[in-house]
């Protein structure tokens, strides 16, 4: 659409649509003008949605590879099923709604992949399809497509699955086992049995958990790539992780026997994946720098409260979804002042 606007010659773009063209020659003339008037943006970056989405997929590759290494080829099939279901859903919905086809922008691929990375490795395939369908249909297309959605589609799909199928969604398998021995996640075993998991296992990802959340190492590699490319706002992971560390260590200092230490907080569960790939989603997070700080701090506080005092062992999904809901409000109150604008009461 932007391209079209820029191609419209000056005189016409200013004119309201109702007014007919003055003379019949006017459309052929504009090339001879010395100055072309057009509405902003005037300078266009090379980046477009498809390129950014490709970069996100590359950034997720280490996480995906580690997931396949730990949870076997089933994890790969899960990812393919998730991506295929998400892309097909979007294509079908565009067809039904008679909208221009948008699957080539790659956002459905990212949603499908992210969704699978947050699912337990033993989840039946049809549930993945349900989750991807809900993510794209309710999470994205119903709001008007990419850019209009309030909530992160992948997390919305996961929340739907969590509410629908609580038992399969909390059945975890041991990594590197062939017959899928069930186990607990590090957060679960701390919450219900008070056992700590060795830090090295947490960092490498050799623990029970979702397909793509266990390896902090792989996520950090991909996340740093995204930050380096500036496709993710560094303020959000920094403020999110720092808040969790500070707020978590506060409770740890009060009672080390009852509450886990900050390192355990940082490297367990889905925090790394959430902080680098979910909380940095451009659409559903604040656009202002100040807003990004507020978003990260808010999500961090909610996460620690859910982990320490909630009924669930993990709360990354809900912390980000809740802050997604606050995003329009945060944007509104952190709007930068126009030059010369008077102070509001």
């Amino acid at each position: 659409m932007e391209e079209k606007i820029q191609k419209v010659p000056a005189g016409e773009s200013q004119m309201p649509k109702v007014a007919p063209a003055k003379t019949s020659e006017s459309p052929s003339k504009p090339e001879k003008r010395a100055f072309i008037l057009s509405s902003s943006p005037h300078i266009q970056a090379e980046e477009d949605v498809a390129k950014i989405m490709r970069a996100v997929v590359y950034a997720l590759l280490p996480t995906a590879v580690f997931g396949i290494y730990f949870f076997g080829w089933r994890a790969l099939v899960m990812m393919l099923v998730g991506i295929a279901a998400a892309v097909l859903t979007e294509a079908l919905l565009n067809l039904v709604q008679k909208k221009p086809q948008t699957i080539s922008d790659g956002s459905a691929v990212v949603t499908g992949l992210l969704l699978v990375l947050t699912l337990p490795p033993s989840l039946p395939y049809w549930m993945i399809i349900v989750g991807a369908f809900v993510a794209i249909f309710i999470g994205k297309q119903l709001f008007g497509g990419l850019g209009y959605n309030i909530f992160n589609p992948a997390l919305l799909g996961r929340a739907f699955l969590q509410a629908s199928f609580p038992i399969p969604m909390t059945t975890w398998t041991m990594p590197r086992t062939i017959d899928a021995i069930t186990t607990a996640t590090p957060l679960g075993s701390f919450k219900f049995e008070k056992t700590l998991t060795p830090y090295l296992n947490l960092f490498m990802g050799n623990v029970g958990g979702c397909v793509g959340e266990t390896s902090a190492l792989a996520i950090i590699i991909g996340g740093l790539f995204l930050l380096y490319k500036k496709y993710a706002d560094w303020r959000i992971p920094v403020s999110y992780l720092t808040t969790v560390a500070i707020f978590g260590s506060l409770f740890w200092l009060i009672n080390p026997a009852k509450y886990p230490d900050p390192i355990f907080h940082l490297f367990s569960g889905g925090l790394m994946l959430g902080a680098f790939f979910m909380a940095t989603d451009m659409v559903t997070t604040p656009v202002t720098p100040k807003g990004s700080w507020i978003f990260g701090i808010g999500a961090g506080i909610i996460l620690v409260i859910i982990r320490l005092f909630g009924g669930l062992p993990e709360g990354v999904m809900y912390s980000i979804l809740l802050m997604n809901a606050f995003t329009p409000l945060i944007n509104r109150y952190t709007r930068p002042k126009f030059f010369g604008e008077a102070k509001h009461v």
Partner: peptide, 15 residues
């Protein structure tokens, strides 16, 4: 058949 628990919960009603 696996029941979709969400449907008997409040979110299912709203959806």
């Amino acid at each position: 058949y696996t029941s979709w628990m969400v449907m008997v919960l409040p979110p299912g009603a709203f959806l």
